[in-house]
Amino acid sequence: MPTPLNAMLIARIREAGPLSVAEYMQAALADPAHGYYATRDPLGAAGDFITAPEISQIFGELIGLWVADCWDAMGRPRRLKIVELGPGRGTLMADVLRTLRVAPAMLPEPWLIETSPVLREAQRGRVDAHWADGLDEVPAGPMVLIANEFLDALPIRQFSLDADGWRERLVTAAADGSRLEWALGDARSRQDAGLPGALDSADQGSMAETCPAALALIRDVAARLVDQGGAALFVDYGTTTSRPGDSLQAVRGHRYHDPLEAPGQADLTAHVDFAALAAEAHAAGAVVHGPSPQSLFLEALGVFVRAQVLKRSATPEEAREIDLAVHRLTAPDQMGSLFKALALTDPHMPPPAGFS
């Protein structure tokens, strides 16, 4: 179905040429007037997807305990900036702050990095916080940063390998201007494409992806941790090694969708290359922990113990809901294996909870 953004992108392509996949994703997700995140609350049964904090309060409570453990390892600074990237409705931060009542000596200072006016409004109903458009707006000081299902929505570039080299996948307009379609750019070397060395052994016909925005973010976070102290936790779906593959997907109404159809109306995501991010963080001086499967990470934090505690005062129906939620978070055929947890710390901190 054509959308206003569809027509705008076709006009843009006709004037300036094809778009990279990254440029297309940026427009589809973040255009101020028609972008997916700028115009809606995408979460829940009435939206397009559901994230771990919306599945169960247990997830946010465990992350809150993880923050408290990091704070303790940091020497218990009186004030601690707790920064969340892509905070959705504010559910995770609300659960984290509620859990941090176990650490009354801490004065948490929550910061939500959010550009969507719709989601900011939803967050204001749940959390008393500071808002910023980027990490550079958060004042200096010790920090614990959390990002759940944030990296997967950052714009990626895609390349296809043929006999002449890696050709960038592009988005162009059909000859009759009726729709968007795929195209390929000129061949270039693996190095010029910005792809990791692990892809040197890729077969012809392979697709590969890189996410410059995620790499830049990881560099910035790592540099700040090294300079000012603290830790960061990234939980997302992706791979532990850099490997070929086309992971770009669109989701609309909890169903997979053609990525080029109805831009601005569907969520666009791609798998996270945790190996590339870990290498970037290490090069910036941070200590890298993981990635670890979400199931092992949550189990180490006590997910099953917390579920049993909640079930003691639950009705039979509530107990079944708790079991279903924990299964969804931890089962290998649900979120347990595909989702990973990656932590970064400054060099003076011991391994954080869940990674020792």
Rank of each mutant, 00 (worst) to 15 (best):
L184M: 13
E209N: 04
L195I: 14
D258A: 06
C211I: 10
L215E: 15
P259G: 09
A262I: 02
D200L: 06
L268H: 04
S242E: 12
D273L: 02
A222W: 01
L260W: 03
R252H: 10
A202K: 08
D227T: 15
A275L: 11
V226R: 01
L233I: 05
G245V: 08
T269Q: 12
Q265R: 13
D203I: 00
R224P: 07
P259N: 06
R224M: 07
P244D: 10
P263Y: 07
E209Y: 03
A231I: 05
R255H: 13
Q204W: 08
A222G: 11
Q204E: 15
L215D: 14
A250Y: 00
G194C: 08
A202L: 06
G205C: 07
A276I: 08
F274T: 01
C211N: 13
D192V: 00
A202P: 12
T239G: 03
R255A: 13
A198W: 05
A187T: 05
L199H: 06
D220M: 01
P244T: 07
G185C: 10
A187W: 11
D236N: 04
S247E: 12
V226P: 07
D273P: 08
T269H: 11
L268D: 11
P244A: 01
A231W: 15
G229W: 13
A223P: 03
A222H: 02
G230P: 11
G230E: 14
D203T: 06
G264V: 09
H271I: 02
